Amino acid sequence: MKTDIILAGVGGQGILSIASILGDAALHENLFLKQAETHGMSQRGGAVVSHLRISDKAIASDLIPLGSADLILSVEPMEALRYLPYLSPTGYVVTNTTPVLNIPNYPELEAVLAEIAKQAQHVAIDADEIAGEIGNKRASNMVMLGAAAPFVHIHADKIEDGIARIFEKKGEAVVDLNIKAFRAGLQFALDNR
């Protein structure tokens, strides 16, 4: 078993929280893990990307080669588009449909989503809307993690355990909110893949 994941988004969207949760869940499942991340200028909405490799065998490199990612999990649609060259022919793209309009020449959203829809396996979800319905738009990253969960090869219960461990210092209400957001994203992906 191996899963190579590109996590992409804009600073402040919770990419590193997603990486921490998946890493925690993988380690608690006695899997091997390698991660490399690039932080943009998060205060200015810069790009953030993390390469996350999970396997039941030792992993030599923390970087994912072009054309071999099993999953692109993007919390911002243009960032999903940016990393499509990394996607394997059998890989999934899971993207939020809500853009972060942080540049003056942001491409037309419909064109970005149409390009993503050309991928054989994709899930496009309005994670911000779903998180807002749950009660906190900041939980959109957990909605995205849930939407990507069917393609990660770690059981959803184990990811929920990771959410609980990562957020436990923030209190039970925060843990519960994030698990609820995760489950909403998971259900969306199961219904729409």
Rank of each mutant, 00 (worst) to 15 (best):
A114G: 03
M41R: 00
A127P: 07
V152L: 05
N141D: 06
I5W: 07
H153Q: 06
I125E: 12
I179H: 08
L109D: 02
T38G: 11
N178S: 12
P150S: 10
G162C: 08
S140D: 07
Y83V: 04
I125Y: 08
H28F: 04
R165F: 05
V174E: 12
R193F: 11
A139G: 08
K180E: 15
L190A: 03
S88Y: 00
A139C: 03
Q121E: 08
V175Q: 07
A58K: 12
K34L: 06
E160R: 15
N192P: 04
I5S: 03
E108K: 15
E168H: 04
K170G: 11
V174M: 05
T98Y: 09
V49Y: 14
V175K: 13
S74Y: 04
Q119W: 03
L7S: 13
G40Y: 00
S50A: 14
A47F: 14
A181G: 02
E172T: 11
R193I: 11
A139S: 13
A26M: 12
G67P: 02
S140Y: 10
N102P: 01
A114Q: 05
R183C: 11
N141G: 06
K169H: 14
S140Q: 13
Q13F: 06
H28S: 06
S68K: 12
E108P: 10
M78K: 02
G162L: 03
